[in-house]
Design a protein around this nucleic acid. Structure first.
Lengths: 206, 206
DNA sequence: CCTCACTTTGACCAAATGGTCAAGACCACG
DNA sequence: CGTGGTCTTGACCATTTGGTCAAAGTGAGG
């Protein structure tokens, strides 16, 4: 039963195919709303074949979340304690906005999961994610105390960055209905807006 | 079949009971994840009894969304074109934050719906919501052009307010795991943070 | 080209789920 | 207190859905 790490070429390919299809389906319908039949259809494999590679529906979901967590955390991970504070944070904002633009399915997958209480990902949030956030919050706090940026709560700063950037992926349906735009140029406008907003709030002193 | 407006006392009461239970269940599990059995259990009514008052599961969901839309739009509706620009917008932010604090289930209900493409609420977003947002965006734009607030894109301003405030309701599970707080005092901290952020960005000129 | 492990699938299953229905319980009102 | 409408429910149904399994197909190394 090839449940853990794929070994053969075929396993590697099909693992990949399944996760790709599952990302699509789970991100559109949430865990409960997604069905194995949809994933099977979209991946071009038969349902029993899915279950040859993964022992259960929930295991596919978990594998997806685990696989994505690293990339998800990467933009924050890159925040450099030795860089220029304001520019570091703004670069982080733009990286997150790019993620929302380039990987909306991933964003919605996480959104679905967390809105419903993070039943399948609680460990990773309390573990990896919290550790990273705590670490970077310390960095930001250091910058505040050194007077290099304004004195803001680092946790709420991070939350506000997550909220404003992911909003464009997670609530895309709403955004699109309110500002009818042909292309996805609203991401560019959002970039301008967020750059301005965070730059102003981080400017040292007042 | 008492599907439209409740008439008798019993109908009024049970309609209410069902919607209350449905809000709880739908907001926790999303439309697809919620089951009539759960709603029946939580409302204390039998499943066939639910379907005596509502013709289908989706009709309960729609009734909920419609009923909540008014309250949902209310904070923005109250934004007064004749008030002081900065204070009006900040008051709006705080009203939204209070909504997230007091009515997290409602917030998550909408979040679930919109993340999944707003299949059941598209009309109201394109209709009521868009009209209201367009109207208030004009007000804000007027303030910008009069130099009474900084020159910011009103739509993205509104999005950023939605995103940052609703985040505390919709992503509560995550917030709570990252800042372990006994009470819900993080709402107060968020209020301080958001007040500062939006005040700074709205300050006229630069 | 043979063998053996790996891969694939049609048929099937049990449980869950949205919904129906006919019969009974309840309630208001004359 | 009887009657007609309102309300409630146990039993039932069709479909969907996650998951199983035995049997058949396939591919790579000897």
């Amino acid at each position: 039963m090839p449940s853990k790490i794929p070994r053969t070429r075929i396993q590697k390919k099909n693992h990949e195919t399944i996760l790709e299809a599952a990302l699509d389906v789970f991100s559109r319908h949430g865990f409960r709303g997604a069905t194995l039949d949809q994933i099977a259809l979209e991946s071009g494999l038969s349902k029993p074949n899915l279950l040859y590679y993964f022992p259960s529906k929930v295991s596919i979901h978990r594998a997806l979340l685990e696989r994505l967590m690293t990339n998800w955390l990467d933009p924050l991970y890159k925040l450099d304690a030795n860089g220029d504070p304001v520019e570091e944070i703004l670069a982080y904002v733009l990286r997150k906005l790019d993620m929302a633009r380039e990987y909306p399915r991933e964003s919605r997958l996480f959104a679905n999961e967390i809105v419903q209480g993070a039943p399948n990902i609680a460990d990773q949030i309390e573990g990896e994610l919290k550790a990273l956030v705590d670490d970077k919050a310390q960095v930001i706090k250091g910058w505040s105390q050194a007077g290099r940026i304004a004195n803001v709560d680092p946790y709420h700063l991070i939350f506000s960055i997550w909220a404003t950037t992911q909003h464009y992926a997670d609530f895309d349906a709403q955004v699109r209905k309110i500002i009818e735009t042909d292309g996805s140029s609203h991401f560019d406008d959002a970039g301008v807006f967020l750059n301005r907003m965070f730059r102003q709030m981080l400017a040292p002193d007042a």
